[in-house]
Design a protein around this nucleic acid. Structure first.
Lengths: 143, 143
DNA sequence: TTACAACTTAAAGTTAACTCTAAGTCAATT
DNA sequence: AATTGACTTAGAGTTAACTTTAAGTTGTAA
């Protein structure tokens, strides 16, 4: 099983990454495809899952460097599991904070849109600041 | 009122931006401070609110270019309100999509952490893929 | 046999959004 | 008198994460 082989070109199409990027990731030790009898790279469905996971990590805001650290820990075996957990928990925390921050920013944006709409149809006369204060009565504001 | 004046250095401290950045934003027409009798920039509390709003826009993922477009529309007066609403709604849509994407990525990350913890204390024997499938039974997966 | 896809190394280019330097001026403060 | 902070223009440097080019090699396919 798992015997299907994909060339770098095919794999690029499957993952949405360019062949350049795939080679670049390999240079950074993030993926290590196997080689055929002509020294050509080939990727398998396992590589596909792995890349999928990497892209999820990237998508949380993890930098290449952090991902490289994580991959390096993985290579060192099970005794690094606690370190990996620590690393991922840190990323989790940062990612959560980032999402919350974005939600705050989005809230201001949405308020602004509503304010514009209200201005247009004359249901709002306040200036934006006043409108915000009125509409967000009782909300906690930290920062 | 609103008579307090802040030098660029003070204003940099208040906003967390550098004086370089402030001058750069000015170059890009994002803020236009006033000048005193010696041609020195000064900023007011209105500028502070404005920068605050800009930073919220930035925080939604809006690029400088989009912000510059928005500011340019503002300068053209009330007849551009519809365009501004369109622009902001687009940003809102993108920002929301981005947040949702990040939440998906964070979910995978959290699953991974839980999987590691479960592996550590022997409450999980599945490999990660199997664990994910088991734990996320009945979830929609689009993409 | 011509084209195509992959292979290599090394290095340069790209993008956004700053960030900093140079080099000289000016006004206020110590 | 010296320091400090701000002013100017123009241009160079920074960072991350690719992206592309060069320049030559090799194997498979039409």
């Amino acid at each position: 099983m798992d015997e299907k082989h994909y060339s770098i070109g095919e794999f690029a199409n499957m993952t949405g990454l360019s062949t350049y990027t795939l080679r670049y990731y390999e240079q950074e030790d993030l993926i290590v495809p196997q080689r055929d009898e002509n020294n050509r790279r080939y990727y398998t469905v396992l590589d596909l899952k792995w890349i999928g996971f990497l892209l999820h990590l990237k998508g949380t805001g993890m930098t290449m460097e952090q991902i490289e650290d994580y991959v390096s820990l993985r290579k060192q075996g099970d005794q690094t599991i606690d370190e990996r957990i620590d690393l991922l928990k840190n990323v989790q925390k940062d990612s959560l904070a980032k999402i919350e921050e974005m939600q705050k920013n989005l809230k201001v944006l949405s308020d602004k849109i509503n304010w514009y709409e209200g201005k247009k149809n004359n249901t709002i006369n306040d200036d934006f600041e006043t409108y915000q204060n009125r509409i967000n009565q009782g909300d906690q504001k930290d920062e």
